Every structure is written in structure tokens, then in C-alpha cells.
Simulated scan of single mutants.
Amino acid sequence: MLTDATGSTGGLTIPTQYRGNRLATMEATYADGSNAGPVNWSPYQEVNVSFTFSPDYSGNGLLLTSDFLNALRNNAQASLVFHFWSGATVTYRVIKNAGAVTGTVV
């Protein structure tokens, strides 16, 4: 379970209750279907690498890194689909406006 969050392009921590589930990957796209993020040749971003995102299971958070956020288009909504090893998915929307970032649960 993810919740809404606000932050900056320096990094965004999304409050997350994992409930024993583990994160497999994140899919990031724009409304036009193009890929979002620093890994722009694929919609799938690597988990636990310094330039995309990483879960903080013990701290109940999910960090979107500054590299990921700075790679997003300004004022364009990015749709993030988090895929868990259980097969569950959660969709989350992120909008970057200059240095501010807003994330909302869909």
C-alpha cells in the first residue's frame, strides 16, 4: 500500500506498507506511451540501483532517486507501476514541476 507524497527532485520517499511483499521492478511511462526515467530504452527500471529507485522495507518507504526524478519531463505526468514478486501491482502517478515533485496513488 502506497500513499501520496510531496518532495523535491533531490529525492522522493513514498510512504509504503509492504505487508511482507517484496518489490520486483517498476514500470515508468508517460501518457503518450513513451518511457520515463533514466532507463529510457525500456519502461522497466531496475530496483536497488542508485539511479532509479529502492525499497526501504524496515523504514516503510520507497525512494525515487534524484537521478530518476531529474530524468522526468517537466510538467508531464509519469505513470509508475510497481510490480511485486507476489504478482500484485500498484499504480502511482508522479508530476515534476521545476524542483517540486508530487506523487499520488491511482
Results as ranks from 00 to 15, higher is better:
T9M: 01
N97A: 12
V81M: 05
S79R: 14
K96H: 09
L63S: 09
L64A: 05
Q45K: 00
L23W: 04
A31E: 15
A28R: 01
T13S: 11
A88E: 13
F84M: 15
G11E: 12
D67Y: 15
S58G: 06
R73L: 13
Y18A: 02
Y57L: 10
D67V: 15
T65H: 01
T65I: 02
G11T: 11
S66Q: 09
T16I: 06
F51I: 15
Y92W: 07
V94C: 10
T25N: 09
T91S: 10
L62K: 07
G11D: 04
G20A: 13
L63G: 05
N60Y: 11
G7C: 06
P15Q: 11
Y92N: 11
G99E: 14
L63P: 08
E27Q: 09
G10I: 03
P55Y: 07
V39T: 12
L62Y: 15
A100F: 02
N48K: 05
N97Q: 14
S8R: 07
A78P: 03
Y18M: 08
A100L: 08
V81T: 14
S54P: 00
N48S: 15
G87P: 11
N97V: 14
S79F: 01
G61F: 05
S8W: 06
G10Q: 09
L72I: 12
V94Q: 09
L64S: 02
F84E: 04
S50T: 14
N48H: 07
A31S: 12
L80K: 10
R73E: 13
T13M: 03
W85L: 03
G7Y: 00
